[in-house]
Design a protein around this nucleic acid. Structure first.
Lengths: 134, 134
DNA sequence: TAATCATGTTATAAAAATACAACATGTCAA
DNA sequence: TTGACATGTTGTATTTTTATAACATGATTA
């Protein structure tokens, strides 16, 4: 499995609120599947288990069996990896854009160059309206 | 749209390598759709546009039209938000686990308590084998 | 202005994800 | 050992995502 496959799986795993809720529930300590189902009353037990298996495949949840119980542990290390190799770079990029805009704001108005791909004009718009589409 | 919807959309958007490739391609400056298609030779032009529209809906891509061209700009600010509100907390959690393990390694061997939910034992396993499942 | 070019739109097939039902298995406790 | 309990497995209907085809539009330029 390539590193890109790993990122695919991790982002997809985090891309469902039920799974993020599960991670939140076991953040401060492992829980049994039954305990999780009691919290996630809006979901069927089978659905919870399916989400757990998705999380387990990504390594975000580590399972330990104790008799007839299944204790679901959080392993946040994969998220740490995502943070380091992916999110961090883009978050830094965002900060850099903001800072460059602050610098721009100092210099202010510049003659618009229609020939070059415009970066600042868009960036200005971003800061002006941070509201998302739809 | 709730904040959880936003996270759903963002993680899902990042959960496809084609979209991450697109973001990489426009990280250092905007590109036209045509320019992107030239780079993503393994994908149909329509598919690239569909991915772009997914990215646009999340706010990760901001579109600017210039005549018959469409310039796709990166807006990394949503990723910065994810980093702040979500990834950061878990990444910190991972680091905390590692550090607590370092501390544990000092004290070392402890009597296993079968009554309490075991945390350390699993955590030890995590450090022992960082390899992911499958 | 007519051909070309870059992009946009609509429809659709195929694949994957989601939610759940029904049934199966292994464990514990009386 | 027997019944309750926690979990596991398999199958399936529904929805969403992905990839593409076919056609449309609006801007350039020869």
């Amino acid at each position: 499995m390539s590193i890109e496959d790993t990122f695919d799986a991790l982002f997809k795993a985090l891309g469902h609120r039920a799974r993020r809720r599960i991670l939140d529930l076991i953040k401060d300590g492992p829980k049994t599947t039954g305990a999780l189902c009691e919290k996630l009353t809006d979901l069927d037990r089978c659905t919870v288990m399916q989400h757990l298996s998705v999380l387990e495949k990504t390594g975000l949840v580590v399972v330990e069996r104790r008799g007839r119980e299944r204790w679901n542990h959080l392993d946040a290390l994969p998220i740490h990896d995502v943070q380091k190799r992916w999110i961090g770079a883009y978050a830094a990029h965002a900060v850099a854009v903001i800072e460059s805009l602050d610098a721009l704001a100092e210099t202010d108005a510049q003659s618009p160059d229609i020939t070059a791909p415009p970066q600042a004009s868009i960036a200005m718009r971003q800061v002006g309206s941070r509201s998302k589409t739809s």
